[in-house]
Design a protein around this nucleic acid. Structure first.
Lengths: 243, 243
DNA sequence: GCGGTGATGGCACTCAGTTCCCTCTTCGGG
DNA sequence: CCCGAAGAGGGAACTGAGTGCCATCACCGC
């Protein structure tokens, strides 16, 4: 009566991992995260306590079961970039990759959102996850901005802005219980970031046959009354990256 | 031989807290953070184990002993703002407040930097600390941008950009062992953020006697040939906040 | 059948953090 | 001068996360 009568033990290769996630979320939603011990989870899943920590290095990890894979996907996506990709739109696309992963399981994402919103420990853990995404974006941008003045500064700031815009859109979508259109929301948010940073990474000379399929690629400079000329020139130089 | 012969027990009101911090850092630097237990710290400080957790809610907190006060200072600084302050320069000044706190104890800051750089648990904890600063900035900006289109989005993105620029400058200063000029570095980094976002928060109509003493009031919208007209108009509207 | 390999279970241990209770001091009122 | 309240500190015992070690069992090639 203890070997194979449980329904979750008949599926594919790693049913145990999924069974642990399912058991954990059932208990987390029933009685709360901190009120659930790892022993409770493994008891409900019918496995040994040691096996839990084989699949999840910590209790927090069971709440984010697929972020490791998503981070690897994003890193691979960025590594597959070439010189033809504009850096800023590229990292925006990388952020869209993460949003798509959330959108694949709306109900799961919403449940997790409710958990992380009210458990400080999970919020802290989520921060470290998001931080790794941000570092991946920043490292890619640092490579693309190498040699440019303030290359690492620009990379860090743009990466942070992209992540913040993504999170803003994601949280708005999560608050709507997954009912709103995630793609439209994130496109709008990332469009704002590109409107602030969009033209900086332009590499080739205007007139050169580049990649005109990016609708963001136009330069309009608007200055306000009272700004000294040197300041305007400085802004243009900064924005264009002194190319 | 156990009551009052220790040197740290004769000072001001909270010598115990300082003694714990000193003992903790001695051991952390000697044998590493994870190799030091709380029992080691309290043994060296000559106090009871229970007293450690009276002053620090967790082992990680002893590494950031004054961030709670600094966060309160920053919150108070933002709360003391009025309508005369431009929001973006204001949050930049708030960030400078944090940098100043680091610069007050250069050697301590550098030691802590080396610790957090190589201990994952401390890095995660630092993220949650930085996150609270970022939320304080974002909440202030949300209030100032209320009613504006995409107010919360702008607030979140600008707060993230300011924090990223601050951290970039701070880490550059820490890597120099506190030898470089922190103020100049952070001013440069925050100047970049203001060059990207500086003009967005302008509230009054052009021509109205506002606050022309801010040289950051320049709007740079970037776009390139091939963009549809509606897209350019949309970007300009977004940047100017449809004022 | 046999030895190896990998997945799993079980046990014991460390350590962070908490709970409960004790002691000692201090201070104020009678 | 005594007494009781209050608060800082100390300390034992407990919970629970995470780890190390080893036994067990299944599967697999031989």
């Amino acid at each position: 009566m203890s070997s194979s009568d449980s329904a979750e033990a008949a599926g594919a290769k790693p049913p145990m991992r999924d069974a642990l996630v399912a058991a954990a979320f059932r208990l987390f939603l029933e009685r709360g995260y901190e009120q659930t011990t790892v022993d409770d989870i493994v008891a409900l899943a019918g496995v040994g306590r040691r096996s839990f920590f084989r699949y999840f290095p910590s209790k927090e990890d069971v709440v984010f079961p697929d972020h490791e894979r998503c981070l690897a996907d994003m890193t691979a996506f960025l590594a597959a970039s070439d010189e033809g990709h504009e850096p800023v739109p590229r990292v925006c696309d990388a952020a869209r990759l993460v949003l798509r992963m959330y959108a694949e399981n709306p109900s799961f994402s919403v449940q997790r959102y409710r958990l992380t919103k009210q458990v400080p420990g999970l919020r802290a853990y989520e921060l470290s996850v998001v931080w790794r995404y941000e570092r991946a974006l920043a490292e890619y941008l640092r490579g693309r901005f190498a040699g440019r003045p303030d290359g690492t500064l620009r990379a860090d700031v743009i990466a942070a802005a992209v992540v913040a815009a993504h999170n803003n859109a994601l949280r708005s979508w999560l608050r709507s219980d997954g009912e709103s259109d995630a793609s439209t929301t994130v496109d709008h948010a990332l469009g704002y970031v590109q409107s602030a940073f969009g033209a900086a990474p332009v590499q080739e000379h205007p007139g050169h046959p580049g990649h005109p399929e990016h609708p963001e690629d136009v330069v309009v400079v608007v200055s306000r009354r009272g700004a000294p000329l040197w300041r305007v020139v400085q802004e243009i130089e900064t924005t264009l990256g002194r190319e």
